[in-house]
Amino acid sequence: MAITNLALRELSGCNSLLIKDWIEQHKDEVISHNAKYGMENKKDPLNPASYANKGKDIEKILSLINDEFLNGEGYRKARTE
């Protein structure tokens, strides 16, 4: 799964402006991660925005990330509020 504003927003419950700022501050890392898995922005490789998740069911992946790395705190909390 590509690191995107939507994915991070779903996991963290933060608003998109905070996520946008975080992505901009970690731009090189986001681009590197997405490129490593072939999910980079094909039209502009220097742009951290990725569309690799578009049209895919990312619910299972987000749940797995939440359970494995966030101890079930992030995703469920965002969903219940």
Rank of each mutant, 00 (worst) to 15 (best):
T4M: 00
N5Q: 08
L6S: 13
L6H: 09
L6W: 07
A7V: 05
L11Q: 02
S12F: 01
S12R: 03
C14F: 13
N15K: 15
N15H: 11
S16V: 11
S16Q: 10
S16H: 06
L18I: 11
L18T: 10
L18K: 11
L18R: 15
K20H: 04
K20N: 09
K20A: 10
D21Y: 15
W22E: 06
Q25C: 08
Q25N: 15
K27V: 05
D28A: 08
D28N: 13
E29F: 14
I31S: 01
I31T: 02
I31M: 06
N34A: 10
K36Y: 09
K36Q: 12
K36A: 09
Y37I: 12
G38D: 07
M39N: 12
M39I: 02
E40Q: 15
E40L: 10
N41R: 02
N41E: 08
N41H: 05
N41W: 02
K42F: 11
K42T: 08
P45F: 02
L46R: 13
N47M: 07
P48A: 09
P48M: 05
A49K: 15
A49G: 11
A49E: 07
A52P: 00
K54C: 04
G55N: 13
G55V: 05
G55E: 13
D57L: 03
E59I: 08
E59G: 10
E59H: 01
K60F: 10
K60P: 09
K60I: 12
I61E: 14
S63M: 13
I65Q: 03
I65D: 05
N66F: 00
F69E: 07
L70C: 12
N71C: 09
N71L: 10
N71T: 13
G72R: 13
G72A: 09
E73P: 10
G74V: 02
Y75V: 00
R76E: 05
R76V: 07
E81W: 07
E81D: 07
